[in-house]
């Protein structure tokens, strides 16, 4: 069986006819396998949903208990129709997984979803899974994206807080994964004071803490006077009335896009922090080298760069041209 008849893009997303399921479908389907809880990958309204326990928890927290007709926790290799599927850590956010699809005869395909190779104290590290076809994201699929050690960015934030001790630092970070990543980095860098979080972050931070991730003391950033120098909020909060309670704050944003100045300027931030939960160019290309798949499929992002790299490495590669994945986490 050819790889592109085991799994191929449809309007609803990547579809596996042998197993009768979609992976990270963009619209409601009968049977969905979900890589992780970001809203562009995990949507409500499906029939049966299979994902890691954490991803199912996160979907429930974000979409309510009725987000799917039935759920199943991914646990070891599982037979679905004519194929076997298994979930492996992707290192992206808590619960994020790659999905391996193994037919009885034919090439093994690994759909990595969103993944990251840099150490992240809030989730399990990426597990390289040998395969014939590797489906990679390309959010940062250009050589300009080489992210610094995440701890250097925490140090940059703390240095700015020391430079401007009278100014509160408001850091934009997405609710699932990035906010907790930033907080745990700052803690790792030795910052022990209470950190204020915007109300929209509370549920997921509590969930992370419940799963054993140490975020230190968090206080709500809801009072008129927020008694913390460091405040974490989702990016949408910066356009709301909420932000007006802070006088002359230093506005920062934690994202891989901050690696490029024009992008940071578009955001209008004073303190760009290059903290990403996606693979950068060196780790993306190193992953392709390490796995040495006989074929690479490229999903969302800057496909051109990855395709060119594969061309130079003489690895067959093609873009899947899936639309609808918007990199919520970045």
């Amino acid at each position: 069986m050819r790889a592109d008849s085991i799994l191929f893009p449809t309007e609803s997303g990547l579809y596996c006819p042998e197993g009768g399921f979609h992976i990270d479908p963009l619209r409601p389907v009968e049977r969905a396998l979900i890589t992780h809880g970001h809203s562009d990958h995990a949507r409500s309204g499906h029939g049966a949903v299979m994902a890691t326990r954490e991803t199912l928890d996160i979907m429930r927290l974000r979409m309510g208990p009725d987000f799917a007709a039935s759920t199943q926790i991914a646990d070891g290799p599982t037979r679905i129709g004519g194929v076997t599927v298994s979930f492996h850590p992707a290192g992206h956010v808590l619960g994020s997984a790659q999905i391996a699809v193994t037919p009885d005869r034919g090439p093994k395909i690994v759909v990595s979803g969103d993944y990251c190779r840099a150490p992240n104290p809030t989730c399990l590290p990426f597990e390289p899974v040998p395969c014939d076809v590797f489906v990679t994201e390309a959010t940062f699929g250009l050589p300009v994206f080489r992210f610094p050690e995440p701890l250097t960015q925490a140090a940059k934030l703390l240095a700015s807080m020391a430079e401007f001790p009278d100014r509160q630092h408001l850091i934009g970070a997405y609710a699932l994964g990035k906010a907790q990543h930033v907080i745990s980095l700052v803690r790792e860098a030795g910052y022990a004071a209470p950190i204020a979080i915007h109300g929209a972050l509370k549920t997921l931070c509590d969930y992370y803490i419940g799963q054993g991730v140490d975020l230190g003391e968090l206080i709500p950033a809801t009072a008129d006077e927020v008694p913390a120098q460091l405040v974490i909020a989702p990016p949408s909060a910066f356009a709301s009335l909420w932000v007006q309670r802070f006088r002359d704050p230093v506005i920062g944003f934690a994202s891989g896009w901050m690696a490029v100045r024009a992008r940071a300027r578009q955001r209008g931030v004073e303190l760009p922090l290059i903290i990403s939960d996606h693979v950068d160019w060196p780790s993306l290309t190193a992953t392709l080298t390490e796995l040495a798949p006989s074929e690479v499929w490229v999903t969302h992002g800057t496909e051109d760069g990855v395709i060119r790299w594969c061309e130079l490495a003489q690895t067959p590669a093609r873009p899947l041209r899936l639309v609808g994945y918007e990199d919520e986490a970045e």
């Binding site: 300009v144 100045r261 024009a262 060119r308």
Partner: peptide
């Protein structure tokens, strides 16, 4: 130091030559 096509894609994205070269 870098494939010209990748360099061109990068420059296209970044929009500033010195910054592109510093990054790649």
């Amino acid at each position: 130091r870098l494939d010209e096509k990748l360099l061109a894609l990068s420059y296209d994205f970044v929009g500033d030559l010195a910054e592109t070269i510093a990054l790649v």
